[in-house]
Design a protein around this nucleic acid. Structure first.
Length: 259
DNA sequence: CGCGTTTGACCGGCGC
DNA sequence: GCGCCGGTCAAACGCG
């Protein structure tokens, strides 16, 4: 709703904070195998900020949203959701608990840093935690190892004479047997790479829609192959083409913010 | 044939 | 500058 970047950031933070807990009922399906609810989940979570970031300048029009799923199988009857927000030097943490059956999504994080590799995410979180001191240290990303990547893709945007634009990115971690979760969009695989010090390859996907350059990558976490890291870059310039079953609600434009 | 995947080549950034 | 490494290209291939 707000066009100014500073205000936009603030607005979004508040939104996430209040929205997560009610939606936790959707989360169990997120981690288990085929989750067609993935899209619905994000439709609810994504801030209704409509346009906002259009053509905004390089640094601030990109957002990371990270969802970790580590305690998926840990607590069967109740779980706590931790929302940790970070902006600049400020870190705020919100923890909520609720009761549902089945596995849960535990933490959802959003960062303004340029992160989309999971290793970078953890690294940044640690750095930030270290500098800002206190705060709830309840999210223990036990292992973070160094991976200096994720920045490279940005820089090649400026060639072709185009303005350097940072596409919005976010990634999340799920416990899943299936590598590629169904998010409602059609993807075409355009590459696969073995990453150093990992046994599982990383796959690169692009949205099949014309004039839509959204990319997606999927990989398994080296430390725990049960985990799948899904990363998105860019915003879709269209609605999900997968199916036209808009029984519940048409995905408003807010969905385009991330997808 | 149309469309998606596979897979090695290629490219650009970065560290040494 | 060279070699490593991650991201992308594209020709070959597979499948309906």
């Amino acid at each position: 709703m707000l066009n100014q970047q500073g205000s936009f950031e603030q607005q979004e933070m508040g939104f996430l904070g209040t929205l997560i807990p009610p939606n936790m009922a959707l989360l169990p399906q997120l981690g288990c195998s085929q989750s067609s609810s993935l899209k619905a989940f994000f439709n609810d979570i994504i801030p209704p900020t409509s346009s906002t970031v259009t053509g905004g300048d390089a640094t601030s029009d990109h957002v990371n949203l990270m969802i970790s799923h580590e305690t998926l199988f840990s607590s069967p009857s109740s779980s706590s959701a931790t929302l940790k927000q970070r902006e600049g030097g400020i870190t705020s943490t919100t923890t909520t608990t609720c009761d549902i059956e089945g596995p849960h999504l535990l933490s959802l994080q959003r960062s303004s840093a340029n992160l989309w590799a999971w290793g970078d995410v953890n690294e940044s979180l640690n750095n930030n935690k270290r500098s800002s001191g206190g705060g709830g240290g309840d999210i223990d990303h036990h292992h973070h190892h160094h991976q200096h990547l994720g920045v490279s893709a940005l820089k090649m945007k400026k060639i072709k004479g185009r303005r350097k634009v940072r596409e919005p990115r976010f990634c999340f971690k799920t416990m899943s047997d299936v590598d590629v979760l169904d998010d409602g969009y059609k993807w075409r695989k355009y590459g696969q790479k073995v990453v150093k010090n990992t046994q599982h390859p990383r796959s690169y996907y692009r949205c099949t829609q014309d004039n839509c350059r959204v990319k997606k990558r999927v990989e398994r976490l080296a430390e725990d192959p049960r985990m799948v890291i899904t990363s998105y870059e860019g915003r879709h310039a269209h609605s999900p083409s997968h199916d036209l079953d808009q029984d519940s609600q048409p995905p408003s434009q807010l969905a385009n913010f991330f997808w």
